[in-house]
Amino acid sequence: MADQQRADARRNYARILAVAEQEVAAHGADASLERIARVAGVGSATVRRHFPGRQALLEAVFRERIESLCARAEALADAADARAALLDWLGGLTEYSASARGMAEALVQDRLVEPEQVSACSVKLEGAIEPLLRRVAEQGAVAPGVTAADLVTLVTGIALATEHHSDPAAEGRRLLDLTVRGVSPSH
């Protein structure tokens, strides 16, 4: 019986987190906990049991997406077309950044996450994409001197620039494509 309860709790946690990701993507850091509970098919008490407040839920969504992006970079590291793999990953980072409207700011503002932790996430992303960027550079498919930190910073700038756009994801993608032409012109 206890194993069944733990399994149910794990499924509820995963379902709540998946719905929270979608809601944060749609509504930013102000996503409604009540709506998340309703869409996940659980009671608000279940959400609070797993995530005592909005900040805890935002932190879990933030951490989950960072881990997912790092895993994606690792999966792409050995792709035959390193440039296409890098552009795919940058597109995913741009999409995530556009969908995470206000999340990092909300976490820092509420002092749940220190600014250094947000910076640590950038460093983690940079480290994850570094092997792929190195392969792209070896193939001569990126401008000399481009670093992983440069790429993460560019995507962060795009996310900030498009935050209040009517379609931040589409505008982010357009600006990323424009940026890529300068960073890694196709041959």
Score class of each variant (00 low, 15 high):
40 A>I: 06
21 E>V: 10
66 I>M: 09
81 D>F: 01
76 L>T: 00
156 T>L: 07
2 A>M: 02
46 T>S: 13
128 A>S: 00
80 A>L: 03
2 A>F: 10
172 G>V: 07
73 A>V: 09
38 R>E: 05
133 L>C: 08
119 S>T: 03
100 A>F: 13
33 L>V: 05
41 G>I: 04
143 A>K: 14
92 G>R: 04
33 L>M: 12
97 S>H: 11
168 P>N: 08
82 A>C: 05
72 R>D: 06
171 E>P: 01
132 L>V: 01
4 Q>D: 06
76 L>Y: 09
6 R>K: 02
62 F>L: 10
22 Q>M: 07
4 Q>I: 07
169 A>Y: 14
40 A>S: 14
31 A>R: 04
66 I>W: 14
140 G>V: 02
149 A>T: 06
37 A>Q: 08
166 S>E: 04
20 A>E: 08
105 E>K: 02
177 D>T: 12
144 P>K: 14
116 E>D: 04
110 D>C: 10
148 A>M: 03
159 A>N: 00
36 I>R: 08
82 A>Q: 02
83 R>M: 01
148 A>L: 04
60 A>E: 07
35 R>S: 14
162 T>H: 08
127 G>Y: 10
107 L>T: 07
101 R>N: 03
183 V>S: 07
40 A>Q: 06
77 A>P: 09
21 E>H: 15
136 V>A: 00
42 V>N: 04
30 D>K: 03
112 L>T: 01
41 G>M: 06
3 D>M: 12
61 V>N: 10
63 R>E: 12
10 R>M: 09
113 V>S: 13
59 E>L: 04
32 S>K: 02
6 R>V: 05
13 Y>N: 13
48 R>M: 14
42 V>E: 05
140 G>K: 06
12 N>V: 00
84 A>W: 02
164 H>F: 11
70 C>V: 09
151 L>C: 02
142 V>H: 07
156 T>N: 05
18 A>S: 11
63 R>H: 12
139 Q>A: 13
166 S>M: 01
146 V>C: 06
21 E>S: 14
105 E>A: 11
34 E>A: 15
125 L>D: 04
57 L>R: 01
90 L>M: 11
62 F>D: 15
48 R>V: 11
90 L>Q: 03
90 L>A: 04
148 A>I: 01
155 V>I: 11
133 L>I: 00
164 H>V: 03
120 A>G: 14
136 V>F: 09
